[in-house]
Write a protein that binds this DNA or RNA. Structure first.
Length: 469
DNA sequence: AAAAAAT
């Protein structure tokens, strides 16, 4: 079986996908992070000085920004450098050590407001891969008072993997602030009854945080001064997450600063966000098209499940560079697909990740994929958001994302294909279509974003072979 | 349908 496979892969002609992935190889990877030697002075960032410095760095806001605030006459500050934020020197050092040179659009716009006093609530939208995580982690860390040993900052993520990833960003950023203690509140982390947490920063998933705060009373929600919702639209709108987040939010102090971040907010979700967050500043970088400009979108016509499998197999065969993530609608399909592929290419070459696994397994699978040992990872919506893996340049929708009513789920689609094309790199999205119903959903997605999803089909192109047949 | 809390 494996021999056949390799032969097929070897004799494969130069297909569209192959050419595209070579294309990506040429333009794609650009890791020129040269942290400038930091000229640090150690003035504390007191409020008046901070405002003066921010004022100096004031730039006009371009029309790709849409900012709403209570008092439209109050100026909104923006910074062109991390120095201008006047962070604690240790924190600035951490930022440079991570390889960040200059703030991204969302960072330069959101950060001055997020770290200014008095604290202000914010709802921010910015496309995937533009540095949202770094923006809010930095804001979180600036608020920590290490002379107090109780949790002051709470960040919630929708999945285990995302919480871990965010925690790792925070830890790297706080590398030179050894006093700051960060704690994960996720599956697999346990505390005993009566424990009182002394960590300054809690990063976790809603269930565990609820458990620790309200049930075990391991920390006091009313003492939290910064409350962050990552992937805020799912957190406040998706059943299951919604009740937990709102319940937690109700226990916060009125003075607690709230930060909501996501790449997508459906209209009514944004309305709801503005309803539950007191007088928020809303920032939207409305350039969805830019993400899509970097990603070529295709669809492949298939006759059914097995046909879709053949398409995946063929795609796998032509991946020469980079990695692919394959999204399925259910854990069962993901498991089935992974099993079938493992039989053909060996179980060490393909990964599968879903909520079926234990947290230890999930961590191991993602680590293995991150290290590049596998060309492809089969998963569910659990990985549709936020996960940042450099080498991913192909996203395949084995099943298109749909909502509870069975309609196109455009938000999830954008998040899924946003796993590639991160930070301006190029990527390919391939949708497998096996029914009229699917085709209709695909057309809806195309219409929603106003971007062509092109047919990848042997009948239409003599260069494409064996895709979906 | 998946995810997130143990049970």
């Amino acid at each position: 079986m494996t021999d056949n496979w390799n032969k097929a892969a070897e004799t494969q002609e130069l297909t569209e996908i192959q050419r595209l992935s070579e294309d990506i190889n040429e333009i794609g990877i650009n890791n020129e992070h040269k942290p400038p030697p930091a000229e640090l002075d150690d003035n504390p960032a007191d409020a008046s000085l901070l405002m003066k410095i921010i004022r100096k760095g004031l730039i006009d806001t371009k029309n790709d920004l849409d900012i709403q605030r209570k008092d439209p006459n109050s100026p909104l500050y923006s910074v062109k450098s991390f120095e201008a934020l006047h962070l604690k020197p240790e924190l600035l050092k951490g930022v440079y050590a991570m390889g960040y040179n200059t703030p991204s659009k969302i960072q330069e716009t959101a950060l001055p407001t997020l770290i200014a006093d008095p604290p202000q609530n914010m709802i921010a939208q910015s496309q995937s891969g533009t540095g949202k995580t770094a923006a809010f982690t930095l804001a979180m860390l600036t608020r920590v008072d290490t002379t107090k040993d109780y949790p002051q900052v709470l960040c919630l993520s929708p999945t285990y993997e995302l919480a871990i990833q965010t925690g790792e960003v925070a830890a790297r950023m706080a590398k030179f602030c050894p006093d700051i203690s960060i704690r994960y509140a996720v599956r697999g982390e346990e505390i005993s009854r009566g424990d009182k947490l002394k960590d300054h920063v809690i990063i976790g998933t809603p269930g565990k945080v609820l458990d620790w705060s309200l049930k075990f009373r391991a920390f006091d929600l009313s003492k939290i001064i910064v409350f962050v919702l990552d992937e805020a639209d799912v957190m406040i709108a998706q059943q299951g997450h919604q009740d937990q987040c709102i319940r937690l939010q109700k226990h916060l102090s009125k003075k607690c600063q709230m930060m909501l971040f996501s790449a997508t907010y459906e209209k009514k979700v944004m309305d709801f966000a503005e309803f539950i967050v007191p007088s928020p500043i809303t920032i939207r970088l409305k350039k969805e098209e830019e993400v899509l400009d970097n990603i070529k979108q295709y669809y492949v016509k298939c006759r059914g499940q097995d046909d879709k499998y053949r398409a995946i197999a063929n795609i796998y065969g032509v991946i020469t560079i980079g990695q692919a993530i394959i999204f399925c609608h259910t854990r069962k399909t993901a498991g089935w697909l992974a099993g079938k592929m493992s039989n053909e290419v060996g179980s060490e070459s393909v990964g599968v990740l879903s909520g079926d696994l234990t947290v230890e397994q999930r961590l191991a699978v993602l680590d293995r994929f991150r290290e590049g040992h596998q060309k492809c990872l089969i998963t569910t919506n659990v990985l549709s958001r936020g996960i940042d893996i450099d080498q991913v340049n192909i996203v395949v929708n084995f099943d298109l994302p749909i909502d509870q009513q069975g309609n196109a789920d455009c938000e999830t689609y954008l998040h899924r294909i946003g796993r590639t094309g991160r930070f301006g790199k190029h990527g390919i999205a391939i949708n497998l279509i096996d029914s009229e119903q699917c085709m209709r959903i695909c057309r809806d997605i195309e219409k929603h974003f106003g971007k062509k999803i092109m047919l990848l089909d042997a009948e239409n192109s003599d260069e494409i072979e064996k895709i979906g047949t």
